[in-house]
């Protein structure tokens, strides 16, 4: 039986963690490679690196991070942030990533999903979508709208339509990030996640809002997600990968034990 995945996302700026990770023993670690290795050794199922480097001439640093991670971490990992073209994706895959993550660039240029899917296979192409709750209208019938620029720019695109379109265009997996829930630690947006999961036949990764172990349980059951993305819960040392997985397994979910 296929297991539910626990995935962690690390934001990387100029080759360093954007927020340094604090481990339970209170060491501060700003190194994404050491953090990735530590989570891997604790039994994490998958990693996501998000490059938030502002200047494009410093992006090459990310490739060094990717290859250093690939040399030490033997679980799947994807890289996103600033990828606009198939060439960008190819560089990241050559450096050792398993998958590439397209977000706002795919909204602006949906053809990149198809091109990347043809070039590398759909299993390599992750569509990450930032979603905000809005009043239901004729344009946004679900009441969930696609936004970019960290939520500042609404795109007039219904999230469920975009999810279905992403699947048609060649994405192999979806990350559904609730801008409303993000940072609240009050739980994932269960309704949004479930609606997306029921709209497509792709695996869905829930993102944004995870603050307690039961939030992961809820989104993996009621939310119908295949995987839950966690960030600050782990990064600030409140929880460990093993602790989260023990909890989920204890509640009867199929979870890989490291």
């Amino acid at each position: 039986m296929l297991m539910k995945r626990v995935i962690s996302c690390l934001d990387v700026r100029d080759g360093k963690l954007a927020k340094s990770v604090k481990f339970l023993d209170t060491r501060d670690i700003g190194d994404p490679v050491l953090t990735a290795k530590s989570y891997y050794e604790q039994g994490l199922d998958e990693l996501v690196f998000y490059d938030i480097t502002a200047s494009s001439d410093r992006r090459a640093i990310m490739l060094d991070v990717v290859s250093a991670v690939a040399a030490q971490v033997f679980i799947p990992f994807s890289v996103g942030g600033g990828l606009a073209t198939v060439e960008d994706a190819h560089r990241v895959l050559l450096a050792g990533a398993e998958k590439v993550n397209f977000n706002s660039q795919a909204v602006k240029n949906p053809a990149v999903l198809t091109e990347a899917s043809r070039a590398f296979g759909a299993q390599c192409v992750v569509l990450s979508m930032d979603v905000k709750r809005v009043p239901k209208t004729a344009v946004i019938p679900s009441g969930f709208e696609i936004v970019i620029h960290g939520g500042r720019t609404p795109m007039g695109l219904d999230a469920l339509d975009w999810a279905r379109r992403g699947e048609e265009l060649g994405a192999g997996e979806l990350v559904v990030n609730s801008i409303d829930a993000d940072g609240t630690k009050a739980g994932y947006d269960l309704e949004l996640t479930r609606l997306v999961a029921e709209s497509v036949s792709l695996p869905v990764i829930a993102s944004g809002g995870g603050g307690k172990p039961e939030h992961l349980y809820d989104v993996l059951t009621q939310g119908k997600a295949d995987a839950a993305l966690v960030a600050s819960m782990l990064h600030f040392g409140e929880y460990t990968v093993k602790g989260l997985k023990d909890y989920l397994a204890g509640r009867g979910l199929a979870i890989r034990r490291g």
């Binding site: 039986m1 296929l2 297991m3 759909a122 299993q123 192999g172 036949s201 695996p203 295949d226």
Partner: peptide
């Protein structure tokens, strides 16, 4: 079973 997605992707015993 429609809930089984293709490709089979992820961790399985």
């Amino acid at each position: 079973d429609r809930s089984l997605k293709i490709p089979h992707m992820g961790w399985n015993p």
